[in-house]
Amino acid sequence: MRKYLIAILIIATAILSSCFRQYNNDDTYRKGWTLAWEDDFDEFSNESVWSKTPRDKQHSFRYMSDSESLYKLQDGNLVLRGMQDPEGNEKLPFITGGIYTQAFKANETKRLEIRARINPTYGVTPYISLFPNNSSENIVIDLIEQYDTDEFIYQSVTSQYTTTEGMPDNPPSSALVGVNPIEYHIYGVEKYPDSVVFYVDGTRTKKYPRIPTKIPGQFPFNDLDFDLYIGLRLDKDTDHAGLPVDFYIDWVRFYEPNSVNLTTDEN
Rank of each mutant, 00 (worst) to 15 (best):
F247R: 04
L232M: 02
Y248A: 07
W37N: 02
I186L: 10
I139P: 03
G242C: 10
I230R: 06
D225Y: 04
I141N: 12
V179I: 15
P171D: 12
D56T: 12
Y29F: 02
V197W: 02
I153L: 15
S48H: 12
K72P: 08
N267P: 09
L232Y: 13
L243I: 04
S18A: 11
Q102P: 07
N258G: 08
L5Y: 09
I99W: 14
P209K: 10
T164D: 13
D27N: 05
F104I: 12
T28W: 13
S173H: 13
Q58R: 14
Y29P: 05
Q22P: 03
F221A: 06
C19G: 13
V189S: 08
G98T: 15
G166W: 12
W37A: 01
P132G: 13
W50C: 12
N133C: 01
F198K: 04
D39E: 12
M83I: 11
S136G: 15
P216Y: 10
R253S: 00
D239I: 02
D250R: 01
G98C: 15
V252W: 00
G98M: 15
T263Y: 11
G178N: 07
I141R: 01
P126H: 09
I114S: 06
E90G: 08
Y127C: 03
F131Y: 14
A103L: 05
T28C: 04
P120C: 02
F61P: 02
I249R: 02
L112G: 10
T28K: 12
T263N: 06
I6N: 04
M83D: 07
E43G: 00
T34W: 00
G88L: 11
L262C: 04
R21V: 06
I11C: 07
D42S: 05
T158D: 12
E151M: 07
L232E: 07
D246V: 02
D225A: 00
T205R: 03
G82A: 14
D227W: 04
I15L: 06
F104M: 02
V260F: 00
I114P: 14
D75N: 03
T203N: 09
D85F: 04
E87L: 07
T125N: 07
G202E: 13
D235R: 08
G166L: 07
V196T: 08
P126L: 05
T96E: 00
P181F: 09
V197T: 15
G188Y: 03
D239E: 11
